[in-house]
């Protein structure tokens, strides 16, 4: 059911982690299949780390959106992959679906749910938050 306040659906980024064997292939396939079946628009990338290293502009656009769900790995890693690409995520508008930990059903349900359960690690302090932008500048 769509959100009652007509908030746009969060953007979706799915990372396939193609070059490593750290995510259960059944989880990856199951989540991707349900994402494809959902009819939603999405970004699917072979490797989020690669986009981060490249400072891909798609990361900046996703980070700037009103909300984003990211199916990848640990939230702490995802937070700093975006930050190091010069595209820090908004902790109040980001949910990371950890494919390394969640079973297929739970991961797919969170990725496709309309609500956003934000879960990025909080910044250590506002001073630390300032310093996060420096490596990307």
């Amino acid at each position: 059911m769509p959100p009652a306040d007509n908030t746009p659906a969060p953007g979706i980024l799915y990372c396939h982690c193609t070059y490593a064997q750290i995510i259960d292939p059944a989880v990856k396939a199951g989540v991707l299949r349900r994402l494809c079946d959902s009819g939603r628009s999405f970004e699917a990338v072979a490797d989020l780390c690669e986009l981060s290293a490249r400072r891909d502009p798609a990361l900046a656009r996703l980070a700037r959106g009103p909300g984003v769900k990211i199916a990848a790995c640990y939230p702490r890693a995802v937070k700093w992959l975006f930050a190091s690409a010069g595209s820090p995520l908004d902790p109040g508008a980001t949910e990371v679906v950890n494919l390394r930990e969640l079973p297929e059903d739970a991961a797919a349900a969170r990725l496709l749910a309309d609500d956003l359960q934000t879960n990025l690690p909080p910044d250590k302090s506002s001073a630390a938050a300032t310093s996060t932008s420096s490596p990307a500048s």
Partner: peptide, 26 residues
């Protein structure tokens, strides 16, 4: 859609799927 996207991801490409609800950043 799943077969095509899976195949392209295995090949190392990034794919933006446009259509229906939601935003993309292509």
């Amino acid at each position: 859609r799943f077969a095509a996207v899976s195949r392209l991801l295995q090949q190392g490409f990034a794919i933006t799927r446009v259509g229906g609800a939601g935003r993309t950043a292509p």
